[in-house]
Design a protein around this nucleic acid. Structure first.
Lengths: 206, 206, 206, 206
DNA sequence: GATGAATGAGGATTCATTCAT
DNA sequence: CATGAATGAATCCTCATTCAT
């Protein structure tokens, strides 16, 4: 039966390496040589496991999406009032939850992946799926909180997109060193609360 | 005596070409050859007018900042109620105002510039200045609207940053083809209104 | 497992190619393309084995120094009277010994390397080591010959430098096609003899 | 009659600039831009006065030859004993005469020109003429000194070449930072004296 | 699986030279 | 005379990818 395959481990190793390198150098700056060095492998071996550099990026996208989903599930596991639930979720997304501090490289990559998606349709498709999932979860949480506050849930869908845009944007601002450090989590929670509180009362049929 | 200078025109031409190419290929993908072709010049001439490719990017950043400022001033020129003022401003930023549709390339570039700023301190500095200016304007508008609504203006600064993050983020989402087309302007205006309506009443000293 | 290395052979091949090309075109004229052609390799491969062109030059310097040392040792191996020893050494350096005619490219390179050393500190350092070793050997031979002739050995150090300067200079003159062909060896041996014969007698402790 | 020509002054200015730049960067490193900057001119104007970069080098060679000749004449003007005469001449060549310290750039250029002469026949020819003139002068001085010392003048021609080689070589060693600073003048004068003192007596017919 | 040599295209940049003004 | 734009070839070097071992 020969030697047991280590392909999965190697692929994970390479994807992780791309994430680290890409966080610093961007996708174009992440040469196969740098990736191989970060993974402690040879360039040739990288291409044995991935046909092209772009394929590594696709797998990294999957990896990031999985990390995100995991984080979401963690946030949803804690039972609390709907509004606290929403707060916990936003904090988790923005990585400020003190219990579980994630890889800052993942955040940096998220921006880089977004920039790259403009010109890589396959990547954009995967990103869209991940974000759509995120939006669904967020919208559900919003609906719960709105209902709990006796408000119409009609705007939940759209509000969820706005919050996601704000999250995505605050990653970018943080990456560029713009905006006061730490404004994001507090600001977003304020905004979410405002969206709930300013929603029209549930009332008629809506 | 001597040949008249056309440097300013040429530089503008090259910056414009970088913007067009960068919107499609990103900064790293915008080779001097592509830029030169887009500007209908020789690669050598591009380097005659700009010492390095990065210098073109810096000038493009200035150009984008100028476009932004112009758009801001236009938005502020129209007199109206404070809230309408704010709405007009947000619409202008998101380029959905039917009167004055801007180059979509500028929007695409804005994202690419943000991604590049992580690795280019000079660029990040320029971006920071531009965004800080934008935040000041937005905060002022918010304050007016809050005051007019009899609300405390205390949160205006922070709220302005959140709105900017949301704007920046919606550019990114749009670029990646994520999120329903056109959600941005309506969503952001809803959010801005919510932030105003949910603010505590002005009242006691706060 | 894995492909066997041929780096050492390739590097030697490239260094040799640089030597041939440099002898004709100088260092600046020795483009990577020319070097690769001379070595029958691709330009890319040259850079696979040497990070920069300057690195090839450094290794060439080492190569030349090794060739020199080899030649020196050969010359010192033949036993004879001290003065004959010195003559053999000078002839060997000037490459006129009919028994062992060296690569004229090596001589041409020696001049080019000297000219380049002005601008390349690392190269200058290596050159200095090689020449200092040469001077030590030459001074020792001079001392032997002086002692054998009953002369003071005090000036041996300085005289060795003068001889080295004359050797270096005659390479240059030969390269430029100046000076009668073949003047160098005879002239230098005459000069060495004169320096010995004109030295003050050993006598008092000096 | 129009504006008076300033061509000669401009050409001299450019030649001088090449000398300064070449002393630091070598001939290949001396770009037209650098030369123009050093001469406080525009690149275009440089090519108005010289068809090619190589032409400037040729004129520089002439300039250096003229400087050399001037220096020789100065040295020969001082009357003294033949041997003192020779000493003065050597000191003058090696630029250690405290009365008239020359441009160190000229010395640095001299080496660079020599290295370039290998591949520029026209340059080599001019260099040859200059050095042959130098050799004639030096041989004459040697002959005087030999005759004055009652020695045969037969070896004067060859000895002059050796001294020139030593001078040329010591420039190179100095440029590369090799050899003890200042060894050159003293060493060469010692060598010249030795060549005279060790020459056979004039005697029979020589 | 793994190594490392090899390739070829393409990257930014420099530069001598020409020429319109 | 002088300026400065313009050109095109050549520069070194990097890189994703392939392949022999």
């Amino acid at each position: 039966m020969g030697r047991p395959t280590n392909t999965d481990a190697r692929r994970a190793q390479i994807v992780e390496a791309l994430m680290q390198v890409m966080a610093v150098h961007g996708f174009d700056g992440a040469s196969i040589r740098l990736i191989a060095e970060a993974a402690d492998l040879t360039p040739g071996l990288v291409h044995y496991h991935f046909k092209t550099k772009h394929d590594i990026l696709l797998e990294l996208m999957n990896h990031l999406a999985a990390l995100l989903e995991e984080r979401l599930n963690d946030a949803l596991a804690h039972k609390a009032t709907p509004r606290e639930h929403l707060h916990a979720f936003l904090r988790a997304l923005l990585s400020l939850d003190p219990v579980d501090r994630p890889d800052p490289a993942a955040v940096a990559c998220w921006i880089a992946v977004g920039a790259q998606a403009v010109r890589a349709p396959a990547l954009a498709a995967r990103l869209q799926v991940a974000l759509a999932g995120l939006q669904r979860t967020l919208a559900a949480l919003l609906r719960d909180a709105l209902a709990d506050a006796g408000r119409s849930t009609q705007g939940a869908e759209a509000d969820a997109w706005v919050l996601i845009a704000a999250i995505q944007g605050s990653f970018g601002l943080a990456g560029a060193g713009v905006a006061p450090r730490g404004f994001a989590a507090d600001g977003l929670i304020r905004a979410a609360d405002a969206l709930i509180d300013a929603a029209p009362p549930a009332g008629k049929g809506a």
